Amino acid sequence: MAEASGVSRATVSFVLNDDPRQTISGATRERVLRAARDLGYVPHGIARALREGSSRIVVLNVDWGIEGNFSRSYVRGLDEELAQHDHVLLVRHGHSAPEATQKILDTIAPRAVFRLGEIYMRGHDGPIEEDRTDGFAANAALQIGYLAERGHLRIAMAMPDHEFPLTEARLAFAREAARRLGLPPLEHLVVPRPRETGATAVATFLAAHPDVTALAAFDDDIALRGLTALHDLGVRVPEDMAVMGFDETEYGSLTTPALTTVHIDAEVLGRLAARGALGIDAQDLAPTPGRIVVRASA
């Protein structure tokens, strides 16, 4: 291949390995890649893994319940950036036994392993306590701040009927946002499945907290459960109760009233994670702050 492209073997290696530490001109790179195509070169994955100490696979573990725009855009950015550098993304959904996970890691020797739940809580690579415009805490504050700006002083967090670190962090961030805004402490209620059970839970909560005028939902799924429960109870939205989602999904735009929510684009975060794992400079990338999608429910 070096002979066919008229360059050194080292240059061929740099191009084929997409080595970020080497600067290869576009013309030289194209000559090497053209020679590789003409010669039918196919990299030997096992041999490459033995030489490099790991495979060119990156594993992303996605917890159940993370299904909004954040996860979709993060996976898209991570996958596309890895592909540009000749790496492959393997996404695993749900909770797995540690033994099963270790078997997979031992077999494929991945270049890096990420857990989306941890990234989702932070939204950036710094400590979760940092007050940044691109972090998960800042996005949670957008939701509470929007409702407060519209005169809602008594706000309740509508939560799912399961507990894990993500739900705990989400509630903590919302409560901190309310505290910083000088609002009364957030109430919180669980909106469970099925539909009838959810309506009963919401009715019980409203009877005990008649001063609450807005529900800030854990995510769009919980917001839609809340909308359905309020409809079944004859509570008008947004006249009697505002409802706001979080981490936009397409379903919120299809309801009546359409769901006001927080849109989070994490594609850049995925690209940053990919470059960090590969040791590639990422100074040209900057995370995108969340934004409010204003519709009719709040």
Rank of each mutant, 00 (worst) to 15 (best):
M241N: 12
P238R: 06
L50P: 07
E129Y: 09
R195M: 10
D19R: 11
I57E: 01
G68M: 00
P98R: 14
D232A: 06
V62N: 06
V12T: 00
R34N: 14
T167D: 06
Q84R: 15
M157V: 09
A273H: 15
E250R: 09
G40S: 03
L39N: 03
Q22T: 07
P210M: 05
L16R: 02
D131Q: 15
R275T: 05
A10E: 15
A47Y: 12
S71G: 03
L16W: 02
H44N: 15
D79I: 02
E80D: 14
T228W: 13
A296I: 04
G53I: 06
G53E: 04
R193N: 10
A141H: 00
S13I: 06
V243I: 13
V113A: 04
V294H: 10
T288D: 03
G226E: 10
Q102C: 05
L166P: 06
P289V: 08
T249I: 03
D240R: 08
A277W: 10
T133N: 13
R275K: 08
M121A: 13
R271N: 07
D38E: 11
I155D: 03
R51Q: 12
T204D: 15
I155A: 01
H209A: 08
P287I: 07
L189F: 13
G123K: 01
H85V: 14
A207G: 15
H93S: 06
S13M: 10
I57V: 10
V293T: 03
T260A: 02
R9V: 13
M244P: 10
H231D: 14
V88S: 12
K103A: 14
V294T: 11
A169I: 11
I128C: 09
G182W: 03
E67N: 12
G252I: 00
H231I: 06
A216M: 05
S8Q: 07
T101L: 15
A49W: 12
R76D: 14
I104E: 12
V12E: 02
A141L: 01
R48N: 10
S297D: 02
F114Q: 01
S297P: 06
E176Y: 07
R122I: 01
I292W: 02
A203G: 06
R295W: 00
P110S: 00
A201M: 08
D211Q: 15
R56C: 01
S71F: 04
A169W: 12
H124I: 06
E80V: 09
L78W: 09
T11I: 08
R37H: 09
V58H: 10
E52G: 02
V59G: 04
G117L: 12
Y41D: 05
R180E: 11
R154A: 14
D161A: 05
G40C: 01
A112E: 11
T28P: 11
R115M: 14
A274E: 03
A274S: 08
D131F: 05
L186K: 13
H162S: 09
H162E: 11
I24L: 08
R21V: 01
L82W: 09
H188I: 08
L186V: 08
E118W: 09
G279Q: 08
P98G: 13
G135K: 00
G252D: 00
E149F: 07
G151R: 11
L147C: 02
A277H: 10
L215P: 11
L39E: 11
A137V: 05
E118C: 01
V294Q: 15
L78G: 04
